[in-house]
Amino acid sequence: MRKYLSVIICLMAMGASAQENHKPEDTEYLTPVPNVVTPGKGTAAPSDAVVLFDGTDLKNWETKDGKPAAWAMADKAVTVSKGDIQTKQKFTNFQLHIEWRTPAEVKGESQQRGNSGIFLQDRYELQVLDNYNNKTYTNGQAGSIYKQSRPLVNACLPPGEWQIYDVIYTAPVFGKNGDLIVKARVTVLQNGVLVQNGTEIRGTTEYIGQPKVEAHGAAPIRLQDHGNPVSYRNIWIREL
């Protein structure tokens, strides 16, 4: 026992001696220097963001078949009309800010009330739904990764009020043969409240059946037409 204590004391002494021989700057790094980004004030986007929609036009959006997006615009917002729309630009890893509003006049219940969706990389749906005093299946309510992961909490505001999603998304990684190496992950804050925390996305969003794994590269952000007049505004994205 004394032998082991002597060894431990010797190692501790050596460690202390080694620390004494080091300087603070030995563990200080001067490069690379982080880029300077000016945060947006109020609802403005950060200086390095790509503004996808600022309320003036839909020049950055198109239909699934490449035609100009034609959703109705008013008061710097765009409202779901006929058919999905998606960004012309494709993305991989990103930070996304998007504001949405369900109709103030409540119609329907469960999935028929203020339903839309934000598809990350065109295939993984972050649900948009009016879940203010509106019950539905938990992995299909607002803040869920639809049919996969329920939100940690229900952070919905009343119908007719603008709500905010801030999304941090890391794309999946596939091998040369198309095999999935690393699953996609997503963190979501709804109205400043954490609802998805580094959640693994198991595969494509499917209404019926299990998620599917399909190899892909960069892809657009898609907004869903689910037959309800949900509105969007102030959409920007930062590529990571």
Rank of each mutant, 00 (worst) to 15 (best):
G178Y: 07
I208P: 13
N131V: 12
S116E: 07
R150E: 15
T170N: 14
G160F: 02
R202V: 14
L96P: 03
S149I: 11
Q127G: 08
G108M: 03
T138A: 13
K176W: 09
N131G: 08
S149W: 10
Y137H: 13
L157Q: 03
L96C: 06
R185E: 10
V186A: 05
F94N: 02
E200N: 05
A142H: 01
I201H: 03
Q163S: 07
Q112G: 14
L194V: 05
L152K: 08
Y124P: 03
V106N: 07
P158K: 01
I118M: 06
D122Q: 07
V195A: 03
I208L: 12
Y165H: 10
G175S: 09
F94L: 13
E161F: 10
Y124K: 05
K90A: 09
T170C: 07
V188G: 02
E105A: 15
C156D: 07
W100P: 00
I145G: 00
E99L: 08
S144V: 09
A104W: 05
F119C: 04
L120Q: 08
G143E: 02
A184V: 00
N191M: 06
Q163M: 06
T138Y: 15
L157G: 00
T87Q: 08
K107Q: 14
L180S: 08
V195I: 12
R101Q: 11
G114E: 01
R202Q: 15
P151W: 01
L120F: 04
Q127C: 12
N177D: 15
Q196N: 03
V106G: 09
D122C: 06
G114Y: 01
D179A: 12
L189Y: 13
T187L: 04
V153F: 02
V182H: 13
T187N: 01
D130E: 00
Q112M: 15
P158S: 02
